[in-house]
Each structure stands twice: as C-alpha cells, then as structure tokens.
Design a protein around this nucleic acid. Structure first.
Lengths: 99, 99
DNA sequence: TTGGAATATCGGAAAAAGTCGATATATATT
DNA sequence: AATATATATCGACTTTTTCCGATATTCCAA
C-alpha cells in the first residue's frame, strides 16, 4: 500500500515543516547561495533550519522522497530537494476517493 | 498540530482498512443485525473482520475518533462507529493548501 | 439483583520510528 | 594526490507504536 508509506512520511512534525518550508524557498531559505531555487534547497540549509543533526535530516529527506513527496537533484557536492507537487494533488484525490 | 494526529491515525494498515470498510457497511458487514447502518457498525463486527483482538480494535477506533475521522453512537450495549465524511473533505483541502 | 454480553481501559512485551555520533562516499579545490 | 566540504549510511540508544491478555465498566435480560 503506497498510501500507507505516504501517511507515515507525513506523521512527523519536522517532516511536515520541511514540506511547508519548501513551498516558499526564497522566503524560508534566504541564505542559499550555490544555486537558484528551481532545483530546490540543499540538505545543509534544511538541516540548519530544522535544528536536527545532518544525519537525521538526510534520513528524513529520503523518507519523503521514497514516499514520492519530494524529488532530489544532485549538483556538484550538493543535493537539492524540492516538492513534487503532482504527488500532493494525487494525495488529495486519494483522500476524496480511496480512503 | 491537528494534522499530525490525523496522519498518525492514518499510518496503520488496519485503521486504513477500517475506514474503507465503513464506506460501504452493507457490503462489508452483512452480518450486523442489531441496528440499521445509519448509526454505523458496532465494534464487534469490525473486530471480527479485522482479525485482531477486541481491545486492539477498540483502541484503534478511539484513535480514529480522536483524529475526528469517525464518530460513535452508543445504543444499548453497542457502540456504533461511522465515518465523519466532512473530516475527509477538510483533509483533502488541507493537503491542497496547508501541507 | 445477578449474570451475561459488548465495549473500554490498563499494563506490558515486542517491533518500529526517532535521533544521535561516527564513518563512508562523492565531489571540488589546490 | 591530498585535503576539504556536502551528503549518505551505519550502529546504537531512546521513545513511540503495535498488539495482546486481563480486568473494569456499562447496559440488558432473566
């Protein structure tokens, strides 16, 4: 069941916050310098904002990615994460019809 | 955060199944005899279908209720649970706008 | 008013998730 | 090639969740 994995990914305060921050990267990550925001936000920036260790945030981001809620792009030594908007639209529909 | 409680409630295979079963009580609980389906389905019927113990299913139903996803009606010695449909519509909107 | 049936609550064992520090890997720079 | 930086992965510990059996509560029926 894919939806179970999605709901588990959403069952954590920090992960929900990360998703919300990524809705407006310019506002929430003004310090990012190595890339424009089209590719997303790098792990380090998210880590600082989350106030958790690097390993934890990296793990959280892969949980979100495995659930399909974000996607990543590697650029040089940075990995940028951004929201996968179609997944949220789909989830909204799943709730209306399948759940 | 209310939405966190909702997602936690949805992060369990059996609880997701219960919600789906309750979408069509006539189909999924044909053996219920003590009441019509307007009030919902009693705990015992859900328990048998879930294949878990009575205490576990009772607990699961209160988790769903605390999250606002179902509501209960006591009739005699039975407690009937049914879906709270507006909560799902609201959740669908939350995902479109807040998450 | 006593016994039985349905549900709720409690306490605990096992599994899963959260979180960290240490280490590994990948990439860039010198 | 050596070093530095960003990210990923690993192992361990703690907290939370899952799920059970036992017990308590509520309501009905005899």
């Amino acid at each position: 069941m894919k939806q179970l994995e999605i709901f588990k990914a959403l069952s954590n305060k920090t992960r929900l916050e990360i998703l919300q921050w990524l809705k407006d990267p310019e506002l929430n990550f003004p310090d990012q310098i190595h890339a424009g925001f089209e590719v997303g936000v790098c792990v380090g920036q998210i880590q600082v904002k989350a106030g958790l260790t690097q390993s934890t945030v990296s793990e959280y981001l892969s949980i979100l990615q495995r659930a399909g809620l974000v996607e990543s792009t590697r650029v040089g030594q940075w990995t940028y994460y951004k929201r996968n908007e179609p997944a949220f639209e789909e989830l909204s529909k799943i709730i209306q019809s399948d759940i």
